[in-house]
Design a protein around this nucleic acid. Structure first.
Lengths: 209, 209
DNA sequence: CAGCGATAATGAATTCTTTCACTAAGTTGG
DNA sequence: CCAACTTAGTGAAAGAATTCATTATCGCTG
């Protein structure tokens, strides 16, 4: 696997291809062409082949790709051939929702714990997780060998929580707070802003008025 | 406002700038330079100026931008100078979370209703919304003049729900299901996949192993 | 087993986005 | 009111990503 520069858009699409391939497996398909994948996920076939080309040759000319084989390759490329241990910090609306969302577990992310600083909600049950105190952060990260931290706290606490997570040994952060986080370059950081998506809709709606 | 081709990345950043400006207003800042904005949100100052340049001239050379003025301009560009009526279809984990999430309302999106097809959860209370039957879709959309539909149903029902929404007169769709939706070109469609973000983290973590 | 049709792989061309470097225009201090 | 300084605006250059067009393989058919 070349570790060169892979466009983030490519990685995002690989994730989407993998889900589509899973669907094809369920439907009992054996092989698939780049054109069919393209159609299924809404990109061009050249795009599909180019994305795959970063990582090797997976298909057979004249035939296409073997669905199950390509699926496994993509899962491996995405690092989803094993499970990741994850902790959520912040058990407000958003944090709770993330903890309950089945989709993460389905794709290989174990939510090991969810924490909050507010005594009023510590102890609340969320699915089969109990909200624990922020004080437990460091020991939980160690105990469960947690690699990924999800930040769902208000903006003014985001940097502080980040530092605690990194101190405890977390290697990647998914930040749902609207605050730019400072981390060292060896830490994998990704920011998600849920309202941005609605606002892009709004922008496009507003154009045609 | 030029209706030419605005890069989606630009629109996304405008949304982020606007949030940062709001924060500056709270802190009582009066003016701000492109460099400060850049710093605050993690891009280059040239990027900030270029993004703004698509829409006009908002600053004063030698000085910077008036925070409150630029904020209002951005909100207007983003179509957030008035509120959008929104309906959520699907009251599972994800749909419920979205209904409860304060962030949408804060940014101008009224969640008018949340629907599901499962009788077991119809009638459940989510904040100040009650889960209603999918049968009500058309009448609710008409009654509340709903412009935006949020799809949080399983993949196999996504296209069907989409068609019902469009039939009822919805003009934009935010799709959280992992399914490519077919819509006419006049409909504004945006797809969000929550697990993709974790998977991009996973990919980057897997690179360094 | 030769030829045809299909499709992956890939280098080149194109388009899109970001960065750079410069210019224009304002402010402040003496 | 001039000089020094700051910062927005912008065309050009550089860099990335996508699309196009060609080539290389493969399987199937007669």
């Amino acid at each position: 696997m070349k570790a060169f520069k892979i466009p983030e858009a490519t990685v995002m699409r690989l994730s989407i291809y993998s889900r589509y391939l899973h669907q094809l497996m369920d439907e009992g398909e054996d092989t698939v062409s780049s054109g069919e994948i393209a159609n299924g996920v809404g990109v061009s076939s050249a795009q599909v082949r180019k994305d795959l080309a970063y990582f090797g040759e997976f298909g057979t000319r004249g035939v296409g790709y073997k669905v199950s084989e390509l699926y496994l390759q993509l899962m491996k490329i995405l690092g989803l051939d094993h499970r990741w241990n994850t902790i959520i910090v912040g058990a407000g609306k958003l944090g709770s929702a993330l903890a309950l969302y089945q989709g993460f577990s389905d794709r290989g992310f174990n939510i090991c714990a969810i924490l909050d600083i507010n005594p009023a909600i510590i102890g609340n049950q969320l699915g089969n997780l109990e909200v624990q105190s922020l004080d437990q952060l460091s020991s939980l990260v160690g105990q469960h060998q947690i690699q990924i931290g999800v930040i769902a706290v208000p903006a003014n606490h985001a940097q502080d929580v980040t530092e605690q997570l990194l101190q405890a040994g977390v290697k990647a952060i998914l930040n749902f707070s609207p605050r730019v986080l400072k981390v060292t370059p060896d830490i994998v950081l990704r920011n998600v802003d849920l309202s941005v998506n609605l606002e892009i809709l709004s922008f496009n709606l507003a154009l045609n008025r």
